[in-house]
Design a protein around this nucleic acid. Structure first.
Lengths: 420, 420
DNA sequence: ATAATTAGTTACATACAGTACATAATTATT
DNA sequence: AATAATTATGTACTGTATGTAACTAATTAT
């Protein structure tokens, strides 16, 4: 366990500078006196720290406060220079590449999406991403040198510690450390790699529900199903970075007609839960229902979509096609069992549904809620992702900002030591 | 988020004193120089802090180090005065009252168990507990005034924040704040109340596996089933202090012959999972198996035990009676599904089985492990509680020590302020 | 115009830690 | 047994931080 030690009076400066920055970053601008009062230090101490921060470029003395109605000499306003640095949030999916740039306050200054063709190689994807980044940098007027950190989310199994993509079935060309290596080389700042669902969870917590829940589960629901878990305010990863792998819940093995649980083996194939609520099953259910109902137009739509049959069914849901709605209701009832299990174990305040199924919105929510109604325990609030496909990018931004927070705006850089 | 601000140089003193104490508490005794080197401060600074700590009574200068083989002037040894204060761990169950006293280093100096008769009123239970405590105090040679903190665990639903027992079906007389009020009044120190399973989890993590796992789930398995969850090194409670309520997992609703899930309502009745793996079901299964096998002696034993039929069956398991083993195997297979669900969601490193079923030891473990073998994901290590019925007391001790740590041996008592 | 009020500046006292050097008490060496 | 080497301790002094206080500056209220 690291143990902080104050080896010199610089330590105090550090602590106080951090406190001042923290306070300042939540306001647009403040007077020195107000800051001193808020932070609990003398005006002089605050002024000294501020001067140091000005030299670092993190803080700026603005104009005199003319708006004040109070008596007395008007205050000099200080402002956090959010533009002192920028961070990048990146998202890679088989469909598209997404880029967002924000300043240190988290204000997005540029964002871009590049659709992805089918047969791009790994190197091509990385170069396309880099050119998208360059475009966004130009748009935001940010030089590469002003980038402090970048985070990138991809599907599949990744190792955040080493930046290696271990398995990414939908984009096998990206396997390995190519992505991170090329990005770091090209951007000249640290690059963090994480699983897209994990990042999306942080994005949802940050920008989605607009209330930073202390405990939420974000379930990505598409062809596959996976969840990100935030507990006590931070992402929980589990022993083998595998927590929230709800696609492998085995809740229906005893149900009549269920597929045996051993059809496939992790991580290549589908888990038992995603097999009964995932995209393939939804298509199957919708097709069967359409056939029963004699809904030939819908059958034709699904058939015409080919590879994109799943999308076609989701479209049909938003259009209100009865067979599609029927399919959704069936998977909703199964999904509800999954939520109930999450509830019993984690007791989260909120469960957010993200991924392709989020498109079904209220239709889906009411169906799941209805099937949850007969549960014994009180159930968590249920919502659909507000960020949709941007959740990953926002989560990546958030991670970048957290990293900056940890390494630059928190204790532990100078004046401190860790005990051995 | 609380933000600490230094209000002067006292702050440094505080930080350093904490660092020194932390280091010192892990050793039996150290020289000042060695301490300085370990903690990363100058000898002078350490000596100054130590003098202050001596005045507080937390540290003691011992004799000169005669054992050292090294050249040079022998060092003055410093020692953490673990006997400067004591904490209490208490456990209440329908069967017995348990008390343990430890010093600040966690060394138990006295422990006592008082069996409980059947029909004691709430007030009687509390007074019996108090007299057990007084006996233990005497045994340890500790005066009431030297008690710094006490923690008590009870079954049922409790509110740790207010110290109120909300529901305790097995000992209804204790409902309310009687217990905590009387204890605080009588012991003259803060008293913390928590659910026994939650405390047992902390006890197991502390003293049980003898390795402080960062993530473990301790499942109490008896008439009812509940779990305590430790993630990232701390107990996770969930939004309504209800996390780990695995008794309410509903995994077998679709199974042929399963009881409908709506028989009972939380928290009075059994949940679906405990209904199929709990004590009552085990007795039912064992009885049925004994009848099938014509094992009349076992039937007689179970019958003679009356209220204690569950105990009788568990005895039969340790004796190796086939019908009892058969029953255990059936519930083990069901329990395995619960473990698999915990694994998929939490991905813990270790699952510990506590409560009455722990008596079945390896028999139970091998059965559960066998039924886990066909799961798709790698499963967590599985163990039986090493502390058994003392897990709660040890967890209570641990909580008391943690509380002392937080309030006395950590930053935040003097010299600090929180920003507004 | 003057008083009151608030902000900013400068000077000084205080507290803490670090460095440097002298001193004390051992073991190792001759 | 005397001396050197080694390690621990003690004292003096320096550097850097904060706080308090007194003074100056720029406004509003009277």
């Amino acid at each position: 366990m690291e143990q902080l030690v104050a080896a010199g009076t610089r330590f105090m400066r550090e602590v106080n500078a951090v406190a001042i920055l923290r306070r300042l970053r939540t306001e647009t601008s403040m007077s020195v006196s107000a800051l001193a009062k808020a932070v609990g230090l003398s005006r002089q101490a605050v002024a000294r720290s501020l001067n140091a921060l000005v030299d670092e470029g993190l803080v700026e003395f603005g104009s005199v406060d003319r708006d004040s109605t109070r008596a007395g000499r008007p205050a000099q306003l200080v402002r956090f220079r959010a533009e002192a640095g920028h961070v990048l949030g990146l998202s890679i999916s088989p469909q598209d590449l997404r880029v967002a740039i924000s300043d240190l306050a988290g204000t997005v200054t540029a964002a871009d999406v590049t659709p992805l063709g089918g047969g791009a190689s790994g190197a091509e994807v990385v170069e396309t991403l880099l050119s998208t980044v360059r475009g966004a940098l130009q748009e935001a007027g940010v030089r590469t040198g002003d980038l402090w950190f970048a985070s990138v989310g991809t599907p599949g199994i990744v190792d955040p510690a080493t930046g290696v993509i271990k398995l990414i079935p939908s984009m096998p060309g990206l396997t390995g450390d190519l992505l991170v290596r090329r990005l770091e080389e090209s951007l000249g700042c640290p690059v963090y790699l994480d699983n897209d669902v994990k990042l999306a969870t942080q994005g949802e917590r940050w920008r989605g529900a607009e209330r930073r829940e202390d405990s939420l589960v974000m379930v990505h629901w598409g062809e596959r199903v996976g969840a990100g878990i935030v507990l006590n305010g931070e992402l929980y990863r589990g022993t083998s970075n595998d927590a929230g792998d709800v696609g492998f819940l085995d809740l229906f093995a005893d149900a009549p007609g269920a597929a045996p649980a051993t059809v496939s083996r992790h991580p290549h194939g589908l888990g038992p839960f995603e097999a009964v609520v995932g995209g393939a099953e939804i298509v199957r259910l919708a097709t069967a229902a359409a056939r029963r109902a004699g809904d030939d137009p819908l059958l034709a739509r699904i058939d015409a979509a080919g590879e994109r049959a799943f999308d076609a069914v989701l479209d049909a849901v938003t259009d209100g096609a009865p067979p599609a709605l029927e399919a959704i209701d069936v998977v909703a009832s199964r999904f509800a069992k999954g939520v109930a299990v999450l509830r019993a174990i984690l007791n989260p305040r909120l469960v957010v549904i993200g991924g392709p199924l989020a498109r079904c919105g209220e239709t889906l929510l009411t169906a799941v809620r209805r099937h949850l109604a007969d549960q014994l325990l009180d159930q968590p609030a249920l919502e659909v992702s507000a960020l949709r496909d941007d959740a990953v990018v926002h989560g990546a931004l958030r991670h970048s900002l957290d990293e900056i927070e940890r390494t630059r705006f928190d204790l532990g850089r100078n004046g401190f030591q860790e005990a051995r």
